[in-house]
Amino acid sequence: MNTFGTSESQMSENATKHTLDPNTWVNKYADYLFKYAVARVNDSNLAKDLVQETFFAGLKSAKNFEGKAAERTWLIAILKRKVIDYYRKINSNKGKAEVRMNFYHDNDKEGNWIEERVPQTWDNDADKLIETTELKAALEQCIDNLPEKYAMVFRMKTIQEFETEEICKELNITASNLWVIIHRARTQLRRCMEDNWFNN
């Protein structure tokens, strides 16, 4: 067995020193890391890749493990960096879906609703609000139409229910940035659901 860090006997002498045992990683941490990743990237294949990369990176840098953190904490720290790298990559991608503006930005009507984007009355919305798989599918489709960064912030805040502070810290954005993103995502989603669900 290939064990890194301090050995078992040293462990008993010094309980605060943690060790790495890569042979047990998959059984002990794969699900935990996977859940963490899936909550942030909302794509199980991508999450799977990130977990794999995390284990590989962990194995590579195992020699540098100082035993100060628990094995799981150490692996999560690596995964966190992998997730951030992913965010950076999508942030820099050009030509992604556009956010459609709902308000004037460049004339004397600044901040007013653009006429054709004004919310319409929803047909029989009470009937249409019942829980159905179609409704959720329509919503999923609308979220997918958002630019990736907007979709991600929206999901983290609304679906995964993370705290504002946590998202800001992780994505390195300010609270007002976050609310602008949430606002744009929600106005776009409202419109998308109006077209595809409520009034179709």
Binding site: W113, T164, H183
Partner: peptide, 15 residues
Amino acid sequence: ISCDEATTICDKSQY
């Protein structure tokens, strides 16, 4: 405030 600002506040208050 403008409609843009008003709806931003509205979104915020949803949380």
